[in-house]
Amino acid sequence: MSSVVSRGTRAPSLRLAIIFTTLVIAVAMSSLWGLSVGAFPLSFQVVINSLLDLDGPQQTYMVMVSRLPRLVLALLCGAALAISGVIIQGIVRNPLASPKIIGINSGAAFAVCLLLALLPQVALVHMPLIAALGGALAAFLVLVGAQFRGVSPLRLALVGVAVGMLFDSGVDFYLVANHSPEQAAPMVWLTGSLWARSWEHVDAVWALLCVLIIVGYGLTHQLDLIGLGDDMATSLGQRVALTRLLLLGIATLLASISVGVVGVLGFVGLMAPHMAAQLVGGRARVQLPCAALLGMLLVILADAVGRAIAPPIEVSAGVLTALFGAPFFVLLMLKNRGDLQQ
């Protein structure tokens, strides 16, 4: 009996170990590449020496002050968006859902635009907090709108799309009404960019994001139970409404804080959870960390590729994630056609 049990479980866990090790190495390698590309290309040797403070002051400055903070933000926000996506897909029980579909991204973006319209000189560092408020407002509206007859996942998604569009129109209005050269920075920010991010931004968000990521991981078992349906989760002793609210809150904060610091990086919250489900299965406890690594990878690569295409010009990371993400979304829909029709 015991030999049967161990044979049954060893192979998958070996597979998991290989997948996670590969992903960690991929994240490390692409980080190194991300630190080396840009207007002034550096060799890997120089990058590593700079990290260890062995190189000249100019290179060290470029790596430590200019490129490392944006790498750290790419790692944090990539993970945050991916985890937010896993949670939202789990709550809504739809593989095509993402933070965007619940209107969170739009709410966050709108709040930042509103802030810029009212206080044009405000420092970028305050954006994450304001964005979190905007995202939370959007999530709250969606919940209120969906709650009239008890939250059904479909209703949540439909109201989410409506609320998202409402906030998007606000963002568009801001952009049209403030069409001047000095407004270029928010425009770049809106397209999802890590341009000109500094340690100041990292300081503003890292602790909060880390706490949210850890709490999110702690709740993966509850997320799995919700995946069995409300009735089943209830009969397994879960307080479904409360748990869903908690999870939605975490997903909202993760996504909107990311929007506040790097803008809208479209499709990361959709792609990463999906690729993770393909690789390691749909159990949140394993899927969530895998998606987090994939999210990091996607954002680092999008940022690095954007700088490598035509230096010194930077293509926004958000443009690239959307460029990859749109066809991915269509593929996903074709693949899920059977499920969606049911």
Binding site: R93, P95, D224, G227, L228, G229, D231, M232, T234, S235, A277, G281, G282, R283, D339
Partner: peptide, 12 residues
């Protein structure tokens, strides 16, 4: 309790 139409989570 087992509902009539349990949700079948994919890939578990």
């Amino acid at each position: 309790f087992q509902p009539q139409h349990p949700v079948v989570p994919p890939a578990i």
